[in-house]
Structure formats: structure tokens, C-alpha cells
Amino acid sequence: MIAKRTTAFGLKMKHQASLLILLAPAMIWYIAFNFIPLIGNLASFTNLKSVVLPWKIVGFDNFIRMYKSPDFWTAFWNTLIISFFYIVFYFPMPIILALLMNELKNRSFKRAVQTIVYIPYFFSWVVVGSIFITLLAPNRGIVNIIIGFFGGPSDTYFMASTQWFRPVLVMSYIWRQVGYGTVIYLAALSTVDLELYDAAKVDGAGYWLQLIHITLPSIRNTIVTMLLLNLSAVMRIFDQILVMQIPAVYSVSDVLRTYAFREGLDNRAIGYATAVSLLTSLLSCLLVLSMNKISKAIFDESVL
């Protein structure tokens, strides 16, 4: 700390005040639109159906009902399995893609790739769903035609198959989101100091050494942050599943969010639906905390 600042107490106060003023608008918004509605989680302990109808406190009844409900457990395990798939298969994709794009010397090609992979992000999930239904249709879909061309069975109904539906979810998620993810990594990669590479080259370090010793450490912070953000995002995946699932694959695709949505808005059991959401939040809290531990152990960097 520089002597000037520590001596001038007033300056420090002014510094703090300015920082708090900068933070204030966002915090006010968070209180008004995030923390006040979070009070609604108390509905978990009631049999609330509507705020204008009489209700009473039922203690842990909603949680007991959850424990007994086979649908809840289906959704619970699906949430864990699907989240796991997303983290394992989707999460590294934007990093790899950003690194590969970073290797391109041709600026316009780089930009073209970047733009093309970003376009699907503008498609709503309903549209992505219908695109995939067409691509994966039995017999007439392109994927099945290609499989048939190489001598495989061309009548796989991917969208209705209990084995294939989860891979389809992950694939379509990657297809739509990966361009969006790479933007952040490209921004992070642009901050890596080029002189470091020059120095490494003088030392005779090859590509992999540079990758491991310079590139990845430089964007480690971003990777860890994105891991946290992705973790919380995968627990919220909802639109995609809602529009892509069909009855034949309910048992492998129904997740806690879709379950809570159905119970809350279709079945009007708000108390119960809130309890399910609360549990989902606790689950994702648990995931984030354990990921924090792992991240600390491996990267020596905390997620939080």
C-alpha cells in the first residue's frame, strides 16, 4: 500500500463511497427483482394455490410428497444425469473451439467461422427442435441417410428413442450454444500477452508446452468462472427440454425444472412446485460447492 493513500483517510472513504455508488443501481435492482421474489420460496411450506385463495402452513408435507412421488425421483435423477452430460460434453467445447479458432491466421476466415457458429444462438429452442426433428427423422432425415449410406440401419427414430434422446439433447445444445460460449473465451484469449509466446519460442517450447504453460494459465480464471456459470445454467435447462421432449421419452428427459413448471402452472400446486424448485436450488448449491472444492484442488482457484 502506498503511503499517500493510507494517510489520507478521507480519500479512502471517498474511494469506498464511489465504489458503493457504482454498485448501488445493480444492488437495488437485485433487491427489487431477485431477493424480494426469493421470499416466495417460503411457499414451499404451505399448500398455496393462489395468493388470493386461503392457504395454510403444512410444514414439510410438500417434501414428504416429493419423497413419495415416483415422478419426482425420475426428474431428480434425470436432472443429475443430464447436467453431468452437459458439463462433460458441452463445457470443454467452447474452449477447444476458441483455441482452434485462435490458431487461424486468416482473419476473415476466423471471423466467418465465428459468425457461422454463432448464428444458431438466434434460433429459439422451438426452431432448433424442429430443425433437429427434420435432420434426425427416420429414413428421410439427413443423419439417417448418411448412416444408411455407410450400410447402417437408416430407420433409427432418434427423437423418440430412450437411448438416443439424451445425446440428442446434448448435441443440439452444443450446436446452438457453442458459438455463444466461444465469444467469452476469445475475448479472454485476446488478453494473453504475446511477448510470453515469443519468449517461450526462444526457449524452444512447442505448441503443447505453450498451451499448457501460457495459454491455459492465462485464461484459467475465465475457465473456472465459466464452469460455475455453466453449472448453474445446466440446472436451469428448461425451454429446450420442454419443446423437444415427446411422450415416448418422458422417462429419460423430464427434469426438476419441467416437473416444477408442470406442477406449478398446469396443476396449480404452487406450494409443491416451489418446494421442488427450492430443492433444485439446494441441489445446484451442493454441486457448486463441491465443484468449488475440486476446482481449488486442481486449479488452485476458487469458483466462488
Binding site: 412421488s69 415422478d71 423418440a160 415427446i246 411422450p247 418422458y250 408442470r262 396443476n267
Partner: peptide, 22 residues
């Protein structure tokens, strides 16, 4: 009232799985 929609969903799931042969 509690399970009506869920059981409807289950019926749809089972019926379509049987017809599709899964």
C-alpha cells in the same frame, strides 16, 4: 387432483412406447 396430469403423462408415455416398440 394431485396426480391427474402426471398419470395422464404416464399413460401417454407407455402407450407411445408400446406402439413404437421401445
Amino acid at each position: 387432483a394431485e396426480v391427474n396430469l402426471s398419470v395422464k403423462k404416464k399413460r401417454e408415455e407407455i402407450a407411445s412406447k408400446i406402439v413404437l416398440g421401445t
